[in-house]
Measured scan of single mutants.
Amino acid sequence: MTYKLILNGKTLKGETTTEAVDAATAEKVFKQYANDNGVDGEWTYDDATKAFTVTE
């Protein structure tokens, strides 16, 4: 299944996707991606759209 990450960081904005077996796996991938790019903020998840959002 495809999951999307929407980044609303102070220095990094954009979107990326990942293929994962479930939302928990996608969340781990996205949190590592955000951490690697220096984005740390409030996380939300919308199951209807399979989209995670992180806002700094």
Rank of each mutant, 00 (worst) to 15 (best):
G14M: 14
E19H: 13
A34L: 10
T2F: 09
T53Y: 09
K4E: 03
Y33N: 02
D47R: 08
A20N: 03
T55F: 08
G38F: 07
F30S: 00
L7W: 11
K28T: 08
T25G: 08
K31M: 08
L12E: 05
T25V: 07
A20D: 03
E42N: 09
A34T: 06
T2K: 11
Y33K: 02
E42D: 12
G14L: 15
V29S: 05
V39R: 02
D40Q: 14
T44L: 07
N8L: 13
D22K: 03
K50P: 01
K10A: 12
K31W: 07
K10G: 07
N37D: 03
T53K: 06
E15G: 06
T49P: 03
K10Q: 11
K4W: 11
K31T: 05
L12S: 07
T55Y: 08
N8E: 07
W43Y: 02
Q32R: 11
T53H: 05
Q32I: 10
K4V: 10
F52A: 00
V39A: 04
F52Q: 00
Y33G: 00
T55A: 06
Y3I: 03
V54W: 04
G41V: 02
V39K: 02
I6W: 06
L7E: 02
L7P: 01
V54A: 03
M1A: 12
T2Y: 09
G38S: 06
E42Y: 13
A48D: 11
E19D: 10
G9W: 06
K13F: 10
N8S: 08
T25L: 06
L7S: 03
K31Q: 07
D40V: 15
K28R: 13
W43I: 03
T49A: 12
D36V: 09
N35W: 15
G38A: 06
F30Q: 00
D22V: 03
E15F: 13
A48E: 13
T11C: 15
K13A: 07
N8C: 13
A23T: 08
V54H: 01
W43R: 00
Q32D: 07
W43E: 00
Y45P: 00
F52C: 01
F52E: 00
T55D: 06
V21W: 12
T11N: 13
T2C: 12
N37Q: 13
A51H: 06
Q32L: 09
V21L: 12
Y3D: 02
F52L: 01
Y3C: 03
E42F: 13
K4N: 04
E42C: 12
E56M: 08
K10C: 13
T53P: 00
E56S: 08
K13Y: 10
V54Y: 03
K10H: 12
N37S: 08
G38C: 09
T18D: 02
T16K: 11
Q32T: 08
A48F: 11
V21A: 13
Y3P: 02
A48K: 12
A24P: 08
D46R: 03
L5E: 02
M1Y: 15
G38K: 07
L5C: 09
T2H: 07
T44V: 10
T49G: 06
Q32S: 08
D36R: 10
K10I: 14
Y33C: 05
F52S: 00
V39E: 02
N8R: 12
Y3F: 13
W43A: 01
Y45S: 01
L5A: 02
A34G: 03
Y3V: 02
A23N: 05
D47V: 10
F30D: 00
G14N: 08
A34S: 05
K13D: 05
Y45N: 00
D47W: 09
V39T: 03
T11M: 11
T2D: 05
G14A: 12
A34R: 01
W43V: 02
T55K: 06
V54E: 00
K4L: 10
E19K: 13
Y3N: 02
A20W: 02
T18F: 11
Y45I: 01
Y33A: 03
D22E: 04
L12M: 13
V29L: 11
A34N: 02
K4Y: 13
V39N: 02
E42K: 10
T44W: 07
K28N: 07
T16L: 15
G41H: 01
G38Y: 06
T44C: 08
F52D: 00
E15Q: 10
A26T: 00
V54D: 00
N8Q: 09
E19P: 05
V54N: 01
D46V: 04
M1C: 13
A48G: 08
F52I: 01
A51G: 04
V54S: 01
T53C: 07
L7G: 02
G9E: 03
T53L: 05
K10L: 15
E56L: 09
K50S: 05
D22S: 07
G9M: 14
A23I: 10
D46Y: 04
L5I: 03
T49W: 06
L7I: 15
D36I: 10
K4F: 11
T17M: 09
T11E: 09
M1P: 08
K28D: 05
F30G: 01
K31E: 04
L5M: 05
G14H: 11
D47P: 15
K31I: 07
D46I: 04
Y45E: 00
G14E: 10
K50N: 07
T2W: 12
T18L: 13
T11H: 14
E15A: 07
T18E: 04
D36K: 10
E27F: 15
L5P: 02
A34C: 15
A24G: 08
T44R: 07
E42H: 12
Y3H: 03
V54T: 02
V39P: 01
T11R: 10
V21K: 13
V39Y: 07
T25D: 09
T17N: 06
A51N: 05
N8V: 13
G9C: 14
T17R: 07
I6E: 03
E27I: 09
T49Q: 11
D47I: 09
V29Y: 15
V54Q: 01
W43G: 00
T44H: 10
A34Q: 01
A24Q: 11
N8D: 09
Y45H: 01
K50H: 12
